[in-house]
Design a protein around this nucleic acid. Structure first.
Lengths: 334, 334
DNA sequence: TGAAATCTTGCAAACGATTGCAAGCATATT
DNA sequence: AATATGCTTGCAATCGTTTGCAAGATTTCA
């Protein structure tokens, strides 16, 4: 149906090698030959079959893009940026959804069966072992949004979650809140734990503030809302660090229903700076995670690995910053 | 590096055909042979290479998933459902991002070069010609969220946008609003126009209500907000049908800033029922688009086409329904 | 002008699988 | 026991490309 190399060769009256060479750059072909071939190819509407090509070149230019997070708004941006950045490098994302928790094992095998050139693991909740499985099969892998501490043998790009936790704590303290709490997502996410660790460590420097923490059942609006409502029965803290923006908006909503004035009765700072945090009727003060840089750097790293698969693993960490909106009261000068 | 068919054959002391056959179901192999091969394969950690296989079977099980909408929250659900549904059928989504408006032409070629078995075009804004381009190359295509009227020669699954428009109008009328307006996204989206058409047609049945319309500059929060603020200078209608939920939340936010009481001063109904519409601090009354069914049906259709590529094109339209929240006042009994 | 150096080109062997065909082997039938 | 029948199995061709090698063509230089 679709024309092949041979068809073009026949029509142009040349060998298949000649045709092949005019379509692989850096190959030696005379201008005359190139013209002839290109003419025939154009007439036939030919373009090389990447799949067949990959058999000999051992490069599919396919990149596995695996994630288990299809419900956080920031992942819209993540997918958008990933696909664009990869496309710009001539790479193609093969999307893998791990949400259904079907054993990761099989995803690893599948990606191998498709001969992907590399894999991007975009998740902060997937265990490092998952990423390592690829490395063990000699497939270049970068764990975007991963935790660097526990996986020193796989490339990680993301943020320093404990630093982010400290940042949140400092912010809350600077606003003069004296009773401060952490309201995280499920404990299983290591990023949550790291954030908590930094948060707690920073707070420990201030003996005059009291600290508490709890975990919502999921990284969702309703989980955040339910948790703050539950907490209210025992008495609220003066300020909360929400584990994530959607959780935080749930907290905010609960607070509003409780008749609390945010930020005066209780302050709230989120994490991620998802788009909705900036909506005027939400106006959540939050910590911005530099997604654009993280992803650009991730694919940059990936293409570097494609050239040199034995590249020594590194962790690339980007700084966050707080974006001030309306859920924290002004900085208190003492 | 990774073991091949030949390696397994060698180790098992059988022909490559034998190995191949034990890995393709429906092939004739004795139990004894199968055991032997499976043992060798397991020892080597072999699994068949899909890419190489596809060369002879002419099936890659790759499905192009192309979209130009990476910033609407409902697309999180869309991607999640698509990838899962495809995975469940043993198909793999090759994600293509058309946002950057790089000519679609080249995406078509690229997908052809990867020998995708089919293409799902998930967009309500991409022109029907785009989908047709695949059909012309004999690649099965289904246009999810597409407009059925103008593309009778390509499979479309989605909703009846003019019916949805009528539904919105009926809803607003039943609440007793007398001055009603349509505030859509950019005109270029045919779905917008269809919705407007139905909306207007239904309103025309009620001579006592006045109608007006306008278009925001994008399908975004800020575009909706800016437009309603602009409109306010000339006097607002009593109720609005927002072209889409994120636009509507922008409108809602603008209305709130204007000091309007929603739903009493002005009513608002959105479209899509994105997750955030259900957040208690937003509580947008909206029309639910049955995304789950649409996508399930889309991939169902796709696998049917893979079996019978000449399947006669059909349009599958699913009914919407309004989900009541807090931006519309109660039904008025006269 | 001739020899050396450099480019072009085609042949044929891969790449990792599948599959039609015919031969080999059991088993069933008479 | 002889023949017919149905399963298994291996051979070899094929899928659409790339690429090392050697031969042929062209250019360079003295």
């Amino acid at each position: 149906m679709t024309p092949t190399l041979k068809d073009v060769a026949l029509r142009a009256g040349v060998s298949t090698s000649a045709v092949s060479r005019t379509f692989t750059d850096g190959a030696s072909v005379s201008d005359k030959m190139r013209k002839k071939v290109e003419k025939a190819a154009a007439e036939l509407g030919y373009s090389p079959n990447f799949i067949a090509r990959s058999l000999t070149t051992r490069r599919t230019k396919l990149i596995g893009l695996v994630s288990d997070n299809f419900y956080n708004p920031v992942f819209l941006e993540v997918f958008d940026r990933f696909t664009r950045a990869l496309q710009d490098c001539g790479l193609r994302p093969l999307l893998v959804n791990l949400s259904n928790e079907t054993d990761p094992e099989s995803s690893v095998r599948m990606l191998q069966q498709y001969s992907v050139d590399g894999v991007m693991v975009a998740s902060s909740t997937l265990p490092p072992e998952f990423s390592k499985a690829f490395r063990d099969k000699n497939i270049p892998v970068v764990n975007t949004f991963g935790r660097h501490a526990t996986s020193p043998d796989v490339h990680v790009v993301g943020i320093d979650n404990v630093a982010a936790g400290r940042m949140a704590a400092r912010e809350l303290i600077s606003r003069g809140y004296k009773s401060i709490a952490f309201l995280g997502g499920p404990k299983r996410a290591t990023s949550t734990l790291d954030r908590l660790e930094g948060f707690q460590a920073e707070l420990a420097l201030h003996p005059d503030v009291t600290f508490s923490y709890s975990f919502a059942s999921a990284y969702s609006f309703h989980a955040g809302r339910a948790e703050i409502l539950r907490l209210a029965e025992f008495g609220l803290a003066e300020a909360y660090f929400g584990g994530d923006d959607v959780l935080s908006v749930g907290i905010l909503s609960g607070l509003q229903d409780l008749g609390k004035n945010v930020p005066n009765d209780v302050g709230l700072i989120g994490f991620n700076n998802m788009e909705m945090a900036g909506w005027e009727n939400i106006a959540l003060t939050t910590i911005h995670q530099p997604i654009a840089q993280i992803i650009a750097s991730s694919v940059e790293l990936m293409v570097a690995m494609l050239e040199n698969p034995d590249r020594y693993p590194e962790a690339r960490l980007f700084p966050c910053h707080v974006v001030e909106r309306k859920t924290l009261r002004p900085i208190q000068s003492r």
